[in-house]
């Protein structure tokens, strides 16, 4: 069965490049350009995984993660934090906040596919 990945990311370039990589690996990819839209799409699409950027206009990735994990409708969806900025103890912080993993941009396409394969559909 085709698995769906929702990318919540404000940079179109990142969405397009990530989408190409994941579609080449057989995933269906949906995107949202901010946290609010991302939360709505997570509820309506029930994706197998969310790739979540941190630095976004409006509510940032940490707040988006908090809201996704607080809502019973979306709390089970695995979320991978996907960031281009250094975050002190980012891995630890994202894990404590309920994220399944933490991934830095720029990325190696193979690594991204491996990580998404590992977590997609592993509802928590």
């Amino acid at each position: 069965m085709e698995r769906t990945v929702l990318i919540i990311e404000d940079e179109k370039l990142i969405i397009v490049s990530t989408q190409m990589v994941l579609e080449a690996a057989g995933f269906r990819v949906e995107s949202a350009v901010n946290g609010e839209e991302g939360i709505q799409k997570a509820k309506s699409l029930r994706p197998d995984l969310v790739l979540l950027d941190i630095m976004m206009p409006g509510i940032d990735g940490w707040e988006t993660l908090t809201r996704l994990k607080r809502d019973p409708e979306t709390s089970g969806i695995p979320v991978i934090i996907f960031t281009a900025r250094e975050h002190a103890r980012g891995h630890q912080k994202s894990s404590e906040m309920g994220a399944a993993d933490y991934f830095r941009k720029p990325f190696e396409p193979d690594e991204l596919i491996e990580l998404v394969e590992k977590h997609a559909g592993q509802r928590v």
């Binding site: 940079e11 370039l13 990142i14 490049s17 080449a24 281009a84 900025r85 250094e86 720029p106 990325f107």
Partner: peptide, 22 residues
């Protein structure tokens, strides 16, 4: 660094996909 990494992500991803025959 963040501002530089964002366009770089595109360059790296696309060139890697091309180089690997994807």
């Amino acid at each position: 660094a963040h501002e530089l990494r964002t366009p770089l992500t595109g360059i790296k991803t696309f060139s890697t996909m091309l180089a690997k025959g994807m």
